[in-house]
Amino acid sequence: MAITIKEVEYIARLANLEFSPEEKERFTHQLSQIIDYMGQLQQLDTEGVEPTSHIIPVSNVFREDRVRPSLPREESIKNAPDKGEGFVKVPKFLET
């Protein structure tokens, strides 16, 4: 199954990524190969096999509802390129 350049652009947009025309071309080809391989897997007979999202037979790993110290604020927002008054700042965008 072939992936189109439009689909690559769509996925790039969802992932917030920008690509050059050459990259888009390359990924179109590579993604098609991956999808083809998935096609091969699809041919396997999985009748009677439960869909698996976790391969280890473990469930219910919990923590108790206890507060533990958080990071000091200087630490937690250290990586942000822009900050002030204890907040992380981003270019203005409005919902309305």
């Binding site: 937690s76 822009d82 002030g84 008054e85 204890g86 907040f87 992380v88 700042k89 981003v90 270019p91 203005k92 965008f93 409005l94 919902e95």
Partner: peptide, 16 residues
């Protein structure tokens, strides 16, 4: 937060 802070006219502020 879109209002009430120093640079609110050009920035949005985030509290996590």
């Amino acid at each position: 937060l879109h209002e009430g802070l120093t640079e609110s006219d050009s920035k949005s502020y985030i509290d996590f």
